[in-house]
Nucleic acid binder design. Structure first.
Length: 733
DNA sequence: TATTTAACTTAGTACCCTAATT
DNA sequence: AATTAGGGTACTAAGTTAAATA
C-alpha cells in the first residue's frame, strides 16, 4: 500500500501520535500560505482553493459537472434569474466531493484536515417564563416560582402523562435536583417546598398541552412561516467549510436542558441536565479562521485547532460527565470515508476469518483457562454476534455484552443448548436459546462451576485483551468488526440465495426485507411493538376473511352452473375460518358498510344539487336505496348454508374460475403480509441498514435485479452512501 | 499493567411529515 | 378535505476502542 498525499488521507499513527492534545498554532505555520485566504472564504467557496491546492481529487469533475460548476463559478453576485423557479429552495446543488475516486480513499489512516471554518454551535433560545396565570401548586396552593425553578418544574410537568412520572427513581432524582435549584431560587411567595407528593405540576402540563394544540391548529402557511424563521436563525450553523468544501454539520444544536432520560434501570434517570453555556463549550476550528461569536451571551471555554480530530465543538454533560460532540453529518466526506473504511475492514476479515475460526475452535479445548475462555468469547462474538461487553460502573444501567456476561445470564439445557437471558445495550433484552458447539456447552458448564449467579462467566477475558489478540491476526481487527462482517456476509448470502430472479419487483423487495430481517435478528435489533399493531392485524385479518368469503360465493355460483365443479378438489374444499357464524358476521358488516356508503353518497349528491341551485332529493330516495341494500342482505341470508349462490350479473364459468384464481392470489399475498407484519413487529430493520450492511450490496443487488435503489434507500441514506452508489451489478461483499 | 478519558459508532424512540385512506 | 398509519428524521443515550494517565 503506497502512501499517498491526498489531503484527507494521512498515513496515521506516526504523524498523529502525541498530537491529541491541543495543537499550538505555530506548529501549523508551514501550511499557512495555503490557508491564509479562507478567512474570507465564506464567499470564495471552492474557487480560490481549487487553484491553490489544485490537481488532486478534482480531476474527474469537469466532465460530468460541467454545467453545475459553471454556475457556481460566477460565485459572488447572484444571477438574477437563478433560484427563482428552476429549483425548490431546498435543493442544495452542492457539487459533491468525489473523495472515493481517490486511489486510496479510505485508507486506514486518521483523516487530517487542512482548514476548518464554521460559526460555532447554536445555543437554544433562553427560557421563556410561563404566563403568570400558569402556576404549579404545592399543597393545593399556587406557587410563585422564579423562572430558574419554574423551568425545571416545567421539564417535569411536561412528562406527567408519560411513564417517567410513574418511575420512583426518576421522581427521586428529579426532586433532589429541583430542590437544589430551589435552594438558590426559592419561591417568591415564601412557600417551603419539602415533599414531592404535595407538588402538583398539572397546571403546567395542561398549559403545555394547550400550547401544543395551538401550534397544531396553525394554518399550513403560518407553520411554514415559523419554520422558515427558525431555519434562517440556524442556517449559519448548518454547514461548515472543511478544506474549503461546504459540508453539512450533523448536530449543530446544543442539547437543550431537560431531565436525563436514561434507558432501562439507569440510576440517574430524572436528573437535571443543565443548560449548556458558551463557557462550557470548546470549539475546534482552523488555526487562521475568524473565531465565531456564540449566539447567546458569553465566551467559549476554549478555542482549539486540532486537525487530528473531526469534531467542531464539544462539552461535558453534567449528569454523567459524558463528552458531547458536534460532528459533521453522515453524508460528509469525513464520515463517508470512515464508513467506507469500516466496511473495507470487515471485508478484509474474509481473508483471516477461516484461520481465526480454526484457531478458536481449537482453543475451545485449551488447557489454559484464559485461552479457553477467550476462545469461547470469540465463538459468542462470531456466531451470536454479541458485542464486546465492556465493564460498566455502579452509576450506570446494569447491562452486559460478551465479556461482561454473568453466570445468571446463561443457563444450560443439555445436551447442547444454551439459554441466554440478559440485558444488552440500551437495556434491550437478549433472550435466545441457541444450539451451540458441544465444546462450547462443556466450557460453559466448567466456567460456571463454583461460582455464584453474580460472578463473571468469563472472568479471565477482558475486552482490551481480546481485541489485542484479534489485532494480532489483522491490523485493526476488533470485536465489533465481527458484527459488521457477519451482518454484511449474511445479507449478501441471503440475497444471493433467495432473490427470485423472475419475480416481480414486490417479490424481490420481499426477499430483500427477509434478508434484512435475518440480519436484524442476528444483531438483536429490536423496537417496541407499534401502538397500532394489534389494530392493524385485525384489520388485515378482516380483509383476508372478506376475500375468502368472496371466494366462497364464487365457488357456490360455479356449483350452480355445473355439478362437475363439486368434484374438483380445488373448489370442493371449504375456505378455512369461514363458517356459518363468520358468514353472518361478514354479511352484516357488509350491509352496514353499504348503508353508510349510501347515506354519504346521498348527502353528497344533495350538497351538489343545492350548490347548483336545485332542490335536493327527497328522503324517500335514500330510504329506497337502503331498502334495496336490505333486500340484498336478506337474499344473501337465504343463500346461507345452501352451498349455492347467484350473482347480480351473470358471468360465464370460465370468468368465474379466473376470478377465483385472482382471489387466491390476493388471499395469499394478504396472508403473507400478515405473517410478515407479525414476524417483524418487534424487529427494527433500520439499524442494520444504517450501520451494518455494506450499502454496496444493496446497490449492486438493485442493479442486478432492476429494482430502483430509491425503494430501499431513503433520501438521507442516499446522501450517506454516495460512495456506494457506483458499485457495479456484480459487486460482492 | 490497570484505569480513565476522549473520540467516535451504534441504538431506540419521540415526533414530524407524507402518502394512503376515508 | 380530513384523518390516520407508517415511514423518515432528529435527538441523544449508550456502546466500543485507542490513547492517555496513574
Amino acid at each position: 500500500m503506497h502512501e499517498d498525499d491526498k489531503p484527507l488521507v494521512s498515513p496515521k499513527k506516526s504523524s498523529t501520535r502525541g498530537k491529541r492534545k491541543v495543537k499550538v498554532e505555530s506548529e501549523d505555520d508551514d501550511d499557512a500560505p495555503l490557508v491564509k485566504k479562507p478567512v474570507a472564504a465564506t464567499k470564495a467557496r471552492g474557487k480560490a482553493t481549487k487553484k491553490d491546492e489544485g490537481s488532486d481529487a478534482e480531476v474527474s469533475k469537469p466532465k460530468k459537472k460541467g454545467s453545475k460548476t459553471k454556475k457556481e463559478g460566477d460565485s459572488g453576485e447572484e444571477t438574477p434569474k437563478k433560484g427563482k423557479k428552476a429549483k425548490k429552495e431546498d435543493e442544495e446543488d452542492e457539487d459533491i466531493h468525489r473523495w472515493w475516486d481517490n486511489e486510496n480513499p479510505a485508507g486506514d489512516g486518521t483523516q487530517k484536515w487542512q482548514t476548518l471554518q464554521h460559526n460555532g454551535v447554536y445555543f437554544p433560545p433562553p427560557y421563556e417564563p410561563l404566563p403568570s396565570h400558569v402556576k404549579m401548586k404545592y399543597d393545593g396552593k399556587p406557587v410563585n416560582l422564579p423562572e430558574e425553578a419554574e423551568e425545571v418544574a416545567g421539564f417535569y410537568g411536561a412528562l406527567l402523562e408519560t411513564p417517567h412520572a410513574e418511575d420512583a427513581v426518576f421522581n427521586k432524582n428529579f426532586f433532589r435536583d429541583w430542590l437544589e435549584v430551589l435552594k438558590r431560587y426559592p419561591p417568591l411567595d415564601g412557600t417551603k417546598i419539602k415533599e414531592f407528593a404535595l407538588c402538583d405540576f398539572r397546571p403546567m402540563f395542561e398549559y403545555f398541552e394547550a400550547e401544543k394544540a395551538k401550534k397544531k391548529a396553525l394554518s399550513a402557511a403560518e407553520k411554514k412561516e415559523l419554520k422558515k424563521a427558525k431555519d434562517e436563525l440556524e442556517a449559519p450553523y448548518a454547514h461548515c467549510f472543511l478544506d474549503a468544501r461546504k459540508e453539512k454539520v450533523g448536530n449543530f444544536r446544543i442539547e437543550p436542558p431537560g431531565l436525563f432520560r436514561g434507558r432501562g434501570e439507569h440510576p440517574k434517570k430524572g436528573s437535571l441536565k443543565k443548560r449548556v453555556r458558551p463557557e462550557d463549550v470548546t470549539i475546534n476550528i482552523g488555526p487562521h479562521e475568524v473565531i465565531p461569536e456564540p449566539n447567546v451571551p458569553g465566551t467559549w471555554k476554549q478555542v482549539i485547532h486540532d486537525n487530528t480530530v473531526t469534531w467542531l465543538a464539544n462539552w461535558v454533560e453534567n449528569v454523567n460527565q459524558n463528552h458531547k460532540y458536534v460532528f459533521l453529518a453522515a453524508g460528509s466526506s469525513l464520515k463517508g470515508q470512515s464508513d467506507m473504511s469500516k466496511f473495507e475492514k470487515a471485508r478484509e476479515l474474509k481473508n483471516y476469518v477461516d484461520r481465526i475460526r480454526a484457531d478458536y475452535r481449537e482453543d475451545l479445548k485449551s488447557k489454559q483457562m484464559a485461552d479457553r475462555q477467550r476462545a469461547t468469547a470469540m465463538y459468542l462474538i462470531d456466531v451470536l454476534a454479541l458485542r464486546a461487553g465492556n465493564e460498566k460502573g455502579e452509576d450506570e444501567a446494569d447491562t452486559v455484552g460478551c465479556c461482561s456476561l454473568r453466570c445468571e445470564h446463561v443457563t444450560l439445557q443439555p445436551p447442547n443448548i444454551l439459554s441466554f437471558d440478559f440485558l444488552g445495550k440500551d437495556s434491550i433484552r437478549y433472550f435466545k436459546q441457541v444450539e451451540v458447539d458441544p465444546q462450547v456447552f462443556k466450557n460453559m458448564r466448567i466456567f460456571k462451576q463454583n461460582k455464584t449467579d453474580e460472578d463473571a462467566l468469563l472472568d479471565r477475558v477482558h475486552t482490551s485483551k481480546l481485541n489485542a489478540h484479534l489485532n494480532g491476526y489483522m491490523k485493526g481487527l476488533t470485536a465489533k468488526v465481527f458484527r459488521t462482517f457477519n451482518a454484511s456476509q449474511t445479507f449478501q448470502i441471503q440475497l444471493d440465495e433467495k432473490t427470485p430472479h423472475n419475480g416481480t419487483v414486490q417479490e424481490k423487495l420481499n426477499a430483500y426485507n427477509e434478508a434484512n430481517r435475518m440480519v436484524a435478528v442476528l444483531c438483536n435489533h429490536q423496537r417496541t411493538v407499534p401502538k397500532t399493531h394489534e389494530q392493524s392485524m385485525t384489520r388485515m385479518g378482516d380483509k383476508v376473511r372478506q376475500l375468502k368469503y368472496e371466494r366462497m360465493k364464487l365457488r357456490h355460483v360455479l356449483f350452480g352452473i355445473d355439478r362437475k365443479y363439486k368434484k374438483n378438489k380445488k373448489y370442493a374444499e371449504d375456505e378455512s375460518d369461514i363458517d356459518e357464524e363468520a358468514v353472518v358476521e361478514i354479511e352484516e358488516k357488509m350491509n352496514e358498510k353499504e348503508k353508510e356508503k349510501a347515506e354519504k353518497k346521498f348527502a353528497k349528491e344533495n350538497e351538489r344539487l343545492v350548490a347548483d341551485d336545485k332542490k335536493p332529493q327527497d328522503d324517500c330516495v335514500l330510504q329506497e336505496r337502503l331498502e334495496e341494500i336490505d333486500t340484498e342482505f336478506e337474499r344473501l341470508a337465504k343463500e346461507r348454508g345452501t352451498g349455492k349462490a347467484s350473482l347480480k350479473r351473470e358471468r360465464p364459468a370460465e370468468k368465474i374460475e379466473e376470478a377465483i384464481d385472482k382471489l387466491d392470489e390476493r388471499i395469499n399475498t394478504a396472508k403473507l403480509q400478515m405473517v410478515d407484519r407479525e414476524a417483524g413487529k418487534e424487529i427494527a430493520l433500520g439499524t442494520s441498514k444504517i450501520n451494518y450492511l455494506d450499502p454496496r450490496i444493496t446497490v449492486a443487488w438493485c442493479k442486478k435485479f432492476d429494482v430502483p435503489v430509491e425503494k430501499l434507500f431513503s433520501k438521507t441514506l442516499l446522501q450517506k452512501f454516495p460512495w456506494a452508489l457506483e458499485a457495479g451489478s456484480d459487486w460482492k461483499f
